[in-house]
């Protein structure tokens, strides 16, 4: 069972503001989808998980300086900028 509170809880975790009608719609859908996911309960705990299909680890390269983005390019898409910095909301009140 999924409650509306559960939906608000994950919305908060995911930093998404949602409305009441949205929460109710998602609640119903999540219940169906999560019930479908229950098929995974059959899978034995003893199986090793696969995070990545390719067995590649620790690809090293020479640590050499390279040309990066210019200051201007990095800020090009920012909705707000000031004196060469990104402008964001206040983190503390």
């Amino acid at each position: 069972m999924v409650s509306v509170e559960d939906v608000y809880h994950v919305a908060r975790l995911a930093k998404l503001m949602i409305s009441e009608p949205e929460a109710e719609k998602f609640r119903k859908e999540f219940e169906d989808i999560l019930r479908y996911f229950d098929v995974l309960d059959e899978v034995s705990q003893d199986v090793r998980p696969t995070f990545h299909v390719l067995e590649i680890k620790n690809i090293f390269r020479e640590d050499l300086p390279k040309e990066g983005l210019t200051h201007e390019a990095a800020l090009q898409n920012a909705p707000r900028k000031e004196e060469g910095y990104f402008v964001g909301p206040k983190v503390v009140d």
Binding site: N77, A78, P79, R80, V87, P89, K90, V91
Partner: peptide, 20 residues
């Protein structure tokens, strides 16, 4: 996050509120 690129909203409220 509406800071470095992408859509943004007009009011710069608190971090969590703005982001959400």
């Amino acid at each position: 996050d509406g800071v470095r690129y992408g859509y943004s909203v007009p009011e710069l409220t608190s971090w969590g509120d703005y982001f959400s």
